Computed example of a mutant assay.
Amino acid sequence: MQFKNKVVLITGGSSGLGFAIAEVFVSQGADVIITGRRQPQLDEAVSRLGGNVSAVRTDISSPAELADMYTHISAVHGRIDVLIANAGMGEVEPLGAITEAGFDRVFATNVKGTTFTVQGALPLMGEGSSIVIIGSTSSINPGPGMSVYGATKAALRAMVRSWILDIKGSGVRINLLSPGPVDTPSLRDVLGENAQQVIDVFNEKSTLGRIGQAHEIGQAALFLASDASSYINGAELFADGGASQV
């Protein structure tokens, strides 16, 4: 699980899970590229991460911006060894209050954006390369108000199962990493004043008695991206303390 001189692209890498995943790859000597929509947050993340890290401001819901990003990466690095397709979003909209705008935003980022992120990366990836798509346990248990978000993550699972057939023989692996609740500032922001009460419920559901920490998801991503998982392809790894298994 060494990544020295490996080129690793992490979308949505300026905060939350993406940032934690970037930290893990930096610690293993990788040349890391992070993306995000906000330049100030990207600049701060690059400063905090240290190591061989660069940033490209990109909104993955825009195929044109993705194309520009890959042109830049090709010119600077010439290849991508690992793609962590992490960028995503969610909105709480229960049935009866689902809006067309909210529906379109979530699908544009999580499904369309991820699709064209993967498709655009493939020409820069060779045999032995790895793609890890960050899903969610919401694909099987979305909870109230999260039907649209859960649907996007379920769509990714279906896509991965097809994509590994589409690129059969290329030597590029694609796997899905689906975290459960992870204690990040963004989760607490979404939960608001009831954050700790809801987290206590999540802790109870976990067979380990706690929700995840961001660096643990980073370690799982590292495994799926590494040669240690060289015969794992098209799989969905749930990193949720066993909650989805009982």
Rank of each mutant, 00 (worst) to 15 (best):
V7M: 03
V8L: 11
T11E: 03
G12M: 07
G13H: 09
S14Y: 05
S15R: 15
G16C: 06
L17D: 11
G18V: 09
G18I: 00
A20I: 12
E23V: 08
V26T: 04
Q28A: 11
A30N: 04
I34E: 00
S47I: 14
R48H: 03
L49D: 02
L49Y: 02
G50K: 03
G51Y: 03
A55T: 10
V56P: 00
I60E: 02
S62K: 05
P63V: 10
A64C: 05
A67G: 07
T71A: 11
T71E: 09
A75F: 07
R79K: 15
I80P: 03
D81Q: 05
V82F: 03
L83N: 05
L83E: 02
G88F: 07
G88Y: 06
M89L: 15
V92T: 14
P94E: 06
L95S: 14
T99S: 14
A101W: 00
R105G: 02
R105P: 01
T109Q: 11
K112Q: 09
T114H: 00
F116R: 10
V118Y: 07
Q119E: 15
L122R: 07
E127D: 12
S130W: 01
I134F: 01
G135W: 01
T137G: 05
S139G: 03
S139L: 09
P144M: 08
G145T: 04
M146V: 08
V148G: 03
Y149L: 12
A151L: 14
R157W: 13
R157Q: 15
V160R: 06
V160G: 02
R161F: 00
R161V: 07
I164N: 05
D166E: 15
I167K: 02
K168Q: 13
G169T: 05
G171Y: 00
G192C: 07
N194R: 12
A195S: 15
I199F: 04
F202I: 08
S206P: 09
T207H: 11
G209A: 10
G209P: 09
I211P: 01
G212Y: 11
Q213T: 08
Q213P: 01
H215C: 02
I217T: 04
G218I: 02
G218K: 02
A220S: 11
F223R: 06
S226K: 10
D227V: 05
D227N: 11
N233S: 11
A235P: 05
E236H: 01
S244T: 10
S244W: 04
Q245R: 10
Q245C: 12
V246D: 08
